[in-house]
């Protein structure tokens, strides 16, 4: 079933950002890698929802999408010199 292969591929694409998270070199590279994994997780959830015909999964994807920026925002806003 092709519909079940697609979430698997998307999961692989999500996990493919882990080496960059491991290697860095800078802290910002790691946060960008985590951000990218977040988008991949949204895509995986959407594909899982389409493959298993369960629209509640779109809500989980929506929650991830709505809060995708908070970690990155915290990193930028709290790093460096305090104001």
């Amino acid at each position: 079933m092709i519909l079940e292969v697609l979430p698997f591929l998307s999961l692989l694409a999500t996990l493919a950002s882990l080496p960059r998270l491991l290697l860095g070199p800078g802290a910002a590279d790691r946060i960008v890698a985590a951000q990218l994994a977040g988008t991949g997780a949204v895509a995986t959830l959407i594909l899982l929802g389409a493959a298993t015909a369960t629209p509640p999964l779109y809500d989980v994807a929506l929650v991830f999408a709505a809060l995708a920026a908070v970690t990155g925002l915290a990193f930028v806003a709290l790093s460096g010199r305090a104001r």
């Binding site: 591929l9 998307s10 692989l12 694409a13 999500t14 493919a16 950002s17 080496p19 960059r20 960008v32 890698a33 990218l36 988008t39 991949g40 895509a43």
Partner: peptide, 9 residues
């Protein structure tokens, strides 16, 4: 998505 991962590498 794979292109994005490749770019990150």
């Amino acid at each position: 998505l794979f292109v994005a991962a490749l770019g990150l590498w």
